Simulated scan of single mutants.
Amino acid sequence: MIKAKFMATGAVLAIAAMALTGCSSDSGSDSSSNIGLSEEAAAALEVAYTGVGTELNLDSIKDVPKDVNLYVVSCGEQVPGCSVPAAAVKAAAEKLGWTATIADGKLNPEGFATAIRQGVAGGANVIIPIGIGCGVAQAAFQEAVDAGVKIIGGGGVDDCDPKLWASERLWLEDFNPIQQWEEFGKLQADYAFGKHNGEVNAIVLNFTGQVFGQWITDGFTKELEALGNKGKVLETVDVSDPETQDGSMLQKVNTAILNNPDANTLIVPIDGWLVGGLAQAIVQSGSAEQLLVVSRGGDAPVLDMIRAGGQGVNATIGFAVGWGAWGSVDTAARVLSGGTPAWIGESMQAVDVDHNMPKSGGYEGAVDYQKVFSSAWGK
Rank of each mutant, 00 (worst) to 15 (best):
G322A: 15
V253A: 04
N34C: 12
G53E: 15
A166F: 09
K186G: 06
S60N: 12
G338W: 14
V136C: 00
P129R: 01
A43I: 13
G286T: 08
T208K: 15
L56M: 01
L292C: 00
D30I: 10
N125W: 05
Q290M: 06
L266E: 06
P162Q: 07
G122F: 05
K252H: 05
Q284E: 13
S32I: 12
G277L: 00
E182W: 06
L224G: 05
G213E: 03
A189N: 03
V157S: 13
I15E: 11
V329H: 02
D330P: 06
V275G: 03
P177I: 06
Q138D: 08
K222L: 02
W377A: 05
M249C: 07
S83R: 04
A300N: 14
Q214M: 08
A300F: 04
G322T: 11
S295M: 10
N254P: 05
G228H: 02
F141G: 01
H196Y: 06
G322L: 13
A11E: 15
E364R: 13
D161C: 04
A325D: 13
A342Q: 12
K379R: 14
A91S: 12
G97Y: 09
L37F: 10
E143I: 01
S38F: 09
D63M: 07
S375F: 05
A166Y: 00
G219H: 04
G135N: 13
S328T: 01
A256V: 15
A325P: 11
Q188N: 15
A91Q: 15
G131R: 00
N206H: 09
P242M: 02
G111W: 00
L303W: 07
G155K: 05
G198F: 02
A91M: 09
G36F: 02
L266H: 04
K95L: 11
L291Y: 09
S31L: 12
I116F: 03
K163P: 14
D67G: 02
K95R: 10
L291A: 13
G122T: 08
D190A: 11
P162N: 00
N229W: 00
N314L: 04
N259S: 14
L234Y: 02
L172H: 10
K106E: 14
V275E: 13
A88S: 15
A87Q: 15
M7N: 14
L336C: 08
F175E: 12
Q180C: 02
I15N: 14
K106C: 07
A11L: 05
G22R: 10
S285L: 10
L107I: 12
E346G: 08
V268D: 01
V302Q: 05
W377S: 11
G309F: 11
I344P: 04
S375T: 13
E199Q: 15
V351I: 12
G194W: 03
E46M: 07
D354P: 04
K106D: 13
I216N: 00
S375C: 11
A86R: 04
V136N: 07
I257G: 08
E346A: 07
E55K: 15
K3S: 14
C160F: 04
N176H: 00
A263W: 14
